Simulated assay, not measured.
Amino acid sequence: MISELNLQQQKGVKQFLTFIMADEEYGVDILTVQEIRSWEEITVLPNAPEFVKGVINLRGTIVPIIDLRLRFGLPSIEYGPLTVVIVVKIEFEHDSKIIGITVDAVSEVYSISEQDAKAVPSISETNNDDYVAGLVNVGEKMVALIDLQKTMNI
């Protein structure tokens, strides 16, 4: 019996967890998501980059918390009741890392065909578009699909 996940992978369809930041919607591959947590107090690390808010102890694992707004150069906001931490596991060439990313709010889970994703147009000489793997239309809105490896390669 073929599972639904295998069938989706054969068709080139992936599921993405989407979230809101600065009134825009972004998505990450749902297979990278370990859990979604509400905002909690963290331990601040001295001399860390501004976007590294600190660390939390997640069942014995020390997890760095990255403010994705600051990582993307968006204005900082005060954390509120909708602020969440999406804990993701990112596979790098030689190892994997568990990282928490703060976002304004979680939105939806979408099944998106990889062939529907469009390339990000290059509009400047800076590499800010490196964080976005592609753009996809979902209904009336556009969702930016995040390349977590590039975004979290600090």
Score class of each variant (00 low, 15 high):
Ile90Asn: 07
Ile90Met: 07
Ile90Thr: 15
Glu91Gln: 14
Phe92Met: 08
Phe92Gly: 04
Phe92Glu: 08
Glu93Cys: 02
Glu93Ile: 07
His94Lys: 10
His94Glu: 09
His94Thr: 07
Asp95Pro: 05
Asp95Ala: 12
Ser96Tyr: 11
Ser96Phe: 11
Ser96Gln: 13
Lys97Phe: 03
Ile98Tyr: 01
Ile98Val: 14
Ile98Lys: 04
Ile98Ser: 03
Ile98Phe: 02
Ile99Cys: 01
Ile99Asn: 00
Ile99Arg: 00
Gly100Ser: 07
Thr102Asp: 00
Thr102Glu: 00
Thr102Tyr: 01
Thr102Leu: 09
Asp104Arg: 06
Asp104Thr: 11
Asp104Met: 08
Ala105Thr: 06
Ala105Arg: 14
Ala105Lys: 12
Ala105Phe: 06
Ser107Phe: 04
Ser107Ala: 10
Ser107Asp: 13
Ser107Thr: 05
Ser107Ile: 04
Glu108Val: 05
Val109Lys: 09
Val109Pro: 04
Val109Trp: 08
Tyr110Pro: 00
Tyr110Leu: 11
Tyr110Glu: 13
Tyr110Val: 10
Ser111Glu: 15
Ile112Pro: 00
Ser113Arg: 14
Ser113Leu: 10
Gln115Val: 13
Gln115Trp: 06
Gln115Met: 11
Gln115Thr: 13
Asp116Ile: 10
Asp116Gln: 15
Asp116Gly: 07
Ala117Ser: 12
Ala117Thr: 13
Ala117Lys: 14
Lys118Phe: 05
Ala119Glu: 15
Ala119Gln: 13
Val120Asn: 00
Val120Thr: 09
Val120Lys: 01
Val120Cys: 04
Pro121Asn: 06
Ser122Asn: 07
Ser122Ala: 07
Ile123Gln: 04
Ile123Val: 07
Ile123Glu: 05
Ser124Leu: 03
Ser124Asn: 08
Glu125Arg: 12
Thr126Asp: 14
Thr126Arg: 09
Asn128Asp: 09
Asn128Phe: 09
Asn128Met: 06
Asp129Asn: 10
Asp129Ser: 13
Asp129Leu: 05
Asp129Phe: 05
Asp129Val: 02
Asp130Tyr: 06
Asp130Gln: 10
Asp130Met: 06
Asp130Thr: 04
Tyr131Asn: 02
Tyr131Ile: 02
Tyr131Val: 02
Val132Ile: 15
Val132Leu: 14
Ala133Lys: 14
Ala133Arg: 15
Gly134Ser: 14
Gly134Asn: 08
Gly134Val: 04
Leu135Asn: 04
Val136Ala: 04
Asn137Tyr: 09
Asn137Cys: 09
Asn137Phe: 10
Val138Trp: 01
Gly139Ser: 11
Gly139Val: 09
Gly139Arg: 12
Gly139Pro: 04
Glu140Ser: 15
Glu140Asp: 15
Glu140Arg: 15
Lys141Asp: 10
Lys141Tyr: 07
Lys141Cys: 04
Met142Cys: 12
Met142His: 06
Met142Gly: 07
Ala144Ile: 01
Leu145Gly: 01
Leu145Ala: 03
Leu145Thr: 02
Leu145Val: 13
Ile146Cys: 01
Ile146Asn: 00
Ile146Leu: 05
Ile146Val: 15
Asp147Val: 01
Leu148Glu: 00
Leu148Ser: 03
Gln149Pro: 03
Lys150Asn: 08
Lys150Ala: 08
Thr151Ile: 09
Met152Asn: 09
Met152Asp: 08
Met152Tyr: 12
